[in-house]
């Protein structure tokens, strides 16, 4: 049994310690957001956030994770109450087949957390690990720009509320 904290919830998982997080999320925890794309760290379809950093869950054996916080796209919001980055992707209709999109959202979420006002180059470099084969790049970029500005707009209110 290995203890994992995913989206704030503790789970005890009965899987071999070398099992990449991706398979545990999808098959043991029923979280479908992260996708298998390559299993090689080449496409980012499996991207999740571990302790604030975007990582390839396909190359993250669960042995690494006790004591660490995993966030998946399911942890960002729901269809009815999407998080700001998810909402920006909806507004921009930033998907074709959408298989890459959950990974894009997670990559963008991590990027914006430490670079709240990214330049165009920073967004593009930040998304470099992730591939989209449908050619949705322009909409994804627009969605990340939109998410950045909505997060920035929300930031002062949040600060005031605290």
């Amino acid at each position: 049994m290995i203890k994992l904290t995913v989206n704030g919830q503790e789970h005890a998982v009965d899987a071999e310690p070398d099992t990449p997080l991706l398979y545990v999320l999808r098959n043991d925890l029923g979280l479908n957001g992260a996708k298998f794309g390559c299993g090689l760290g080449q496409c980012g379809a499996c991207t999740v956030i571990v302790d604030g950093a975007a990582v390839f869950s396909c190359l993250t054996p669960i042995a690494l994770l006790p004591g660490r916080q995993v966030t998946t796209i399911e942890g960002l919001g729901t269809e009815d109450a999407p998080g700001p980055v998810q909402r920006a992707f909806m507004t921009e209709q930033a998907a074709q087949c959408g298989y890459c999109i959950a990974g894009m959202v997670m990559r963008a979420q991590a990027l914006l957390a430490h670079t709240p006002d990214p330049s165009e180059q920073e967004i593009r470099d930040g998304l470099n690990p992730n591939l989209c084969r449908c050619g949705t790049h322009m909409r994804i970029l627009a969605a990340v720009r939109r998410a950045a500005s909505s997060l920035r707009a929300a930031a002062p209110t949040k600060a005031a509320a605290q």
Binding site: L31, N32, G33, T72, I73, E74, L76, G77, T78, E79, P82, Q86, F89, M90, Q93, A95, G98, I101, A102, V105
Partner: peptide, 9 residues
Amino acid sequence: DIPAKLTGG
């Protein structure tokens, strides 16, 4: 189909 694809449905 987009909302489900963005929320892990």
